[in-house]
Design a protein around this nucleic acid. Structure first.
Length: 225
DNA sequence: TATATGATTGCCT
DNA sequence: GGCAATCATATAG
Protein backbone atom coordinates (compact mmCIF):
# COMPACT_ATOMS: atom_id res chain seq x y z
CA UNK A 1 0.00 0.00 0.00
CA UNK A 2 1.62 3.25 -1.13
CA UNK A 3 1.29 6.31 1.13
CA UNK A 4 -0.73 9.40 0.28
CA UNK A 5 1.66 11.63 -1.71
CA UNK A 6 2.75 15.06 -0.57
CA UNK A 7 0.63 16.55 -3.39
CA UNK A 8 -2.47 15.34 -1.53
CA UNK A 9 -1.77 18.05 1.05
CA UNK A 10 -0.93 20.75 -1.48
CA UNK A 11 -4.50 22.08 -1.28
CA UNK A 12 -6.76 24.04 1.03
CA UNK A 13 -7.12 22.49 4.51
CA UNK A 14 -10.88 22.69 3.88
CA UNK A 15 -10.46 20.14 1.07
CA UNK A 16 -7.84 17.99 2.77
CA UNK A 17 -9.69 17.62 6.08
CA UNK A 18 -12.82 15.86 4.74
CA UNK A 19 -10.77 13.83 2.23
CA UNK A 20 -8.64 12.48 5.06
CA UNK A 21 -11.66 10.76 6.65
CA UNK A 22 -11.37 7.03 6.01
CA UNK A 23 -7.63 7.20 5.35
CA UNK A 24 -5.36 5.20 7.64
CA UNK A 25 -2.70 6.85 9.78
CA UNK A 26 0.29 4.55 10.34
CA UNK A 27 3.19 4.80 12.79
CA UNK A 28 5.95 2.21 12.56
CA UNK A 29 7.11 1.89 16.16
CA UNK A 30 9.94 -0.22 17.58
CA UNK A 31 7.19 -2.41 19.04
CA UNK A 32 5.49 -2.83 15.66
CA UNK A 33 2.94 -1.23 13.42
CA UNK A 34 0.32 1.01 15.02
CA UNK A 35 -2.48 2.30 12.82
CA UNK A 36 -6.04 3.59 12.78
CA UNK A 37 -8.74 4.80 10.41
CA UNK A 38 -9.33 8.57 10.61
CA UNK A 39 -12.89 9.42 11.71
CA UNK A 40 -12.51 13.08 12.74
CA UNK A 41 -10.44 16.07 11.53
CA UNK A 42 -10.35 19.85 11.82
CA UNK A 43 -9.12 22.46 9.32
CA UNK A 44 -7.05 25.50 10.27
CA UNK A 45 -6.72 28.06 7.50
CA UNK A 46 -4.94 31.32 6.83
CA UNK A 47 -7.16 34.28 7.83
CA UNK A 48 -8.19 31.99 10.69
CA UNK A 49 -8.25 33.56 14.17
CA UNK A 50 -8.01 30.07 15.73
CA UNK A 51 -4.69 29.25 14.09
CA UNK A 52 -1.47 29.43 16.06
CA UNK A 53 0.17 32.81 16.17
CA UNK A 54 -2.09 34.25 13.51
CA UNK A 55 -1.69 37.77 14.84
CA UNK A 56 2.10 37.68 14.85
CA UNK A 57 2.11 35.72 11.61
CA UNK A 58 -0.06 38.11 9.63
CA UNK A 59 0.71 41.43 11.23
CA UNK A 60 -1.66 44.33 11.60
CA UNK A 61 -1.21 45.40 7.99
CA UNK A 62 -2.05 41.90 6.75
CA UNK A 63 1.45 41.25 5.50
CA UNK A 64 2.70 37.70 5.95
CA UNK A 65 5.32 37.65 8.69
CA UNK A 66 5.94 34.10 9.92
CA UNK A 67 7.04 34.14 13.54
CA UNK A 68 7.70 31.66 16.31
CA UNK A 69 6.13 28.24 16.10
CA UNK A 70 3.65 29.54 13.52
CA UNK A 71 6.49 29.76 11.00
CA UNK A 72 6.34 26.00 10.48
CA UNK A 73 2.71 26.33 9.34
CA UNK A 74 4.10 28.12 6.29
CA UNK A 75 6.39 25.17 5.51
CA UNK A 76 6.09 22.68 2.66
CA UNK A 77 2.82 20.70 2.41
CA UNK A 78 2.70 17.18 3.80
CA UNK A 79 4.93 17.82 6.79
CA UNK A 80 3.90 17.30 10.39
CA UNK A 81 3.22 20.07 12.88
CA UNK A 82 3.27 18.50 16.34
CA UNK A 83 2.21 20.77 19.15
CA UNK A 84 1.93 20.20 22.88
CA UNK A 85 -1.04 21.53 24.87
CA UNK A 86 -1.61 21.60 28.62
CA UNK A 87 1.90 20.25 29.11
CA UNK A 88 0.74 16.70 28.57
CA UNK A 89 -0.86 16.11 25.16
CA UNK A 90 0.75 16.19 21.74
CA UNK A 91 -1.53 17.11 18.83
CA UNK A 92 -0.80 15.93 15.32
CA UNK A 93 -1.32 18.34 12.41
CA UNK A 94 -0.31 18.08 8.77
CA UNK A 95 0.73 21.26 6.98
CA UNK A 96 -1.28 22.09 3.84
CA UNK A 97 -1.01 24.50 0.90
CA UNK A 98 2.21 25.37 -1.01
CA UNK A 99 5.22 26.55 0.94
CA UNK A 100 4.74 30.19 1.97
CA UNK A 101 1.02 29.80 2.67
CA UNK A 102 -0.17 28.85 6.16
CA UNK A 103 -2.65 26.07 6.76
CA UNK A 104 -2.99 22.73 8.55
CA UNK A 105 -5.30 19.85 9.33
CA UNK A 106 -5.59 18.50 12.88
CA UNK A 107 -6.21 14.74 13.19
CA UNK A 108 -8.69 14.40 16.08
CA UNK A 109 -9.80 10.76 16.30
CA UNK A 110 -9.02 7.28 14.99
CA UNK A 111 -10.69 3.90 14.84
CA UNK A 112 -7.79 1.60 15.81
CA UNK A 113 -6.97 -1.04 13.20
CA UNK A 114 -3.44 -2.32 13.90
CA UNK A 115 -1.37 -2.83 17.03
CA UNK A 116 -4.27 -2.70 19.48
CA UNK A 117 -2.37 -4.73 22.05
CA UNK A 118 0.43 -2.14 22.26
CA UNK A 119 -2.12 0.69 22.26
CA UNK A 120 -3.82 -0.73 25.32
CA UNK A 121 -0.46 -0.82 27.10
CA UNK A 122 0.26 2.79 26.15
CA UNK A 123 -3.24 3.95 27.18
CA UNK A 124 -4.14 2.14 30.41
CA UNK A 125 -6.84 4.76 31.05
CA UNK A 126 -8.85 3.55 28.06
CA UNK A 127 -11.63 1.33 29.33
CA UNK A 128 -12.78 0.21 25.91
CA UNK A 129 -11.46 -0.08 22.38
CA UNK A 130 -13.25 3.09 21.30
CA UNK A 131 -11.45 5.12 23.97
CA UNK A 132 -7.97 4.20 22.68
CA UNK A 133 -7.83 7.08 20.18
CA UNK A 134 -11.10 9.08 20.40
CA UNK A 135 -9.36 12.42 20.95
CA UNK A 136 -6.44 14.39 19.47
CA UNK A 137 -4.13 13.83 22.45
CA UNK A 138 -5.26 10.25 22.95
CA UNK A 139 -4.47 9.18 19.42
CA UNK A 140 -0.86 10.40 19.52
CA UNK A 141 -0.41 8.51 22.76
CA UNK A 142 -2.02 5.36 21.34
CA UNK A 143 0.24 5.50 18.29
CA UNK A 144 3.34 5.76 20.47
CA UNK A 145 4.01 9.39 19.58
CA UNK A 146 4.04 10.61 23.17
CA UNK A 147 7.28 12.26 24.28
CA UNK A 148 8.01 12.92 27.94
CA UNK A 149 8.48 16.47 29.21
CA UNK A 150 10.44 18.68 29.24
CA UNK A 151 10.67 18.20 25.47
CA UNK A 152 9.21 21.29 23.82
CA UNK A 153 9.78 20.05 20.29
CA UNK A 154 8.69 16.67 19.00
CA UNK A 155 11.32 14.53 17.20
CA UNK A 156 8.87 13.95 14.35
CA UNK A 157 7.91 17.62 14.01
CA UNK A 158 8.49 18.58 10.37
CA UNK A 159 8.55 14.95 9.20
CA UNK A 160 7.44 14.29 5.61
CA UNK A 161 4.37 12.08 5.87
CA UNK A 162 4.93 10.10 2.65
CA UNK A 163 7.58 7.90 4.26
CA UNK A 164 8.30 5.91 7.44
CA UNK A 165 8.02 6.04 10.34
CA UNK A 166 4.80 8.05 9.99
CA UNK A 167 2.53 8.13 6.95
CA UNK A 168 -1.06 7.99 5.64
CA UNK A 169 -2.57 5.22 3.51
CA UNK A 170 -5.62 5.72 1.30
CA UNK A 171 -8.76 4.05 2.63
CA UNK A 172 -12.42 3.48 1.99
CA UNK A 173 -14.31 6.82 2.09
CA UNK A 174 -16.85 6.90 4.95
CA UNK A 175 -20.55 6.37 4.15
CA UNK A 176 -21.31 9.92 5.32
CA UNK A 177 -19.49 13.06 6.43
CA UNK A 178 -20.85 15.59 8.91
CA UNK A 179 -19.52 19.02 9.86
CA UNK A 180 -19.65 21.23 12.93
CA UNK A 181 -17.74 24.05 14.51
CA UNK A 182 -14.40 23.07 16.02
CA UNK A 183 -13.91 21.82 19.57
CA UNK A 184 -12.19 23.78 22.28
CA UNK A 185 -11.43 26.95 20.33
CA UNK A 186 -12.50 30.37 21.57
CA UNK A 187 -11.74 32.36 18.43
CA UNK A 188 -13.29 31.39 15.11
CA UNK A 189 -15.95 29.34 16.89
CA UNK A 190 -18.46 30.19 14.19
CA UNK A 191 -16.60 28.35 11.44
CA UNK A 192 -17.80 24.82 10.51
CA UNK A 193 -14.28 23.49 10.03
CA UNK A 194 -14.71 20.16 11.86
CA UNK A 195 -15.36 17.04 9.79
CA UNK A 196 -16.37 13.65 11.22
CA UNK A 197 -18.12 10.37 10.48
CA UNK A 198 -21.59 10.77 12.03
CA UNK A 199 -22.54 8.10 14.54
CA UNK A 200 -19.09 6.52 14.62
CA UNK A 201 -18.25 5.32 18.15
CA UNK A 202 -14.64 6.55 17.92
CA UNK A 203 -15.47 10.22 17.29
CA UNK A 204 -14.24 12.37 20.19
CA UNK A 205 -16.78 13.23 22.91
CA UNK A 206 -16.02 16.98 22.94
CA UNK A 207 -18.71 19.58 22.37
CA UNK A 208 -18.43 21.95 19.37
CA UNK A 209 -17.47 25.47 20.41
CA UNK A 210 -20.55 27.24 19.06
CA UNK A 211 -22.84 24.96 21.11
CA UNK A 212 -20.67 25.48 24.16
CA UNK A 213 -20.86 29.23 23.80
CA UNK A 214 -24.61 29.11 23.21
CA UNK A 215 -25.09 27.03 26.35
CA UNK A 216 -22.97 29.45 28.34
CA UNK A 217 -24.89 32.53 27.23
CA UNK A 218 -28.21 30.76 27.79
CA UNK A 219 -27.24 29.98 31.39
CA UNK A 220 -26.57 33.66 31.94
CA UNK A 221 -30.27 34.22 31.45
CA UNK A 222 -31.10 31.55 34.00
CA UNK A 223 -32.73 29.21 31.50
CA UNK A 224 -32.48 25.48 31.97
CA UNK A 225 -32.10 22.94 29.17
C1' DT B 1 9.64 41.02 32.78
C1' DA B 2 4.97 39.45 34.35
C1' DT B 3 0.73 37.25 33.86
C1' DA B 4 -3.16 34.89 31.53
C1' DT B 5 -4.55 30.96 29.13
C1' DG B 6 -5.02 26.98 26.02
C1' DA B 7 -6.56 22.85 19.07
C1' DT B 8 -6.92 18.27 26.70
C1' DT B 9 -7.35 14.46 29.64
C1' DG B 10 -8.66 11.88 33.56
C1' DC B 11 -9.97 11.60 38.12
C1' DC B 12 -13.05 13.31 41.47
C1' DT B 13 -17.76 14.01 43.50
C1' DG C 1 -20.59 17.43 35.32
C1' DG C 2 -16.88 19.85 37.64
C1' DC C 3 -12.04 20.69 38.21
C1' DA C 4 -7.01 20.17 38.79
C1' DA C 5 -2.56 19.35 36.65
C1' DT C 6 1.41 22.60 35.38
C1' DC C 7 4.21 24.73 31.09
C1' DA C 8 5.10 27.02 26.52
C1' DT C 9 3.55 30.83 24.22
C1' DA C 10 1.18 35.06 23.57
C1' DT C 11 0.09 39.43 25.06
C1' DA C 12 0.24 43.31 28.08
C1' DG C 13 2.71 46.66 30.89
Amino acid sequence: MSPLPVSFFDRSPLDVAPDLLGAVLVHETPAGRAAGRIVETEAYTDDDPAMHGWQAAFGLDGRVVPAGRAADLFGPPGTTYLYKVYYRSWLLNVVCLPEGQAGAVLVRALEPTDGLEAMRERRPAARSERELANGPGKLTEALGLWIAPPAARHPLHGHRVDAPPLWFEPGEPPPAVATSSRIGVSRGADRAYRFFVPGHPCVSPGEPSDQRLARRSASQFGSRP
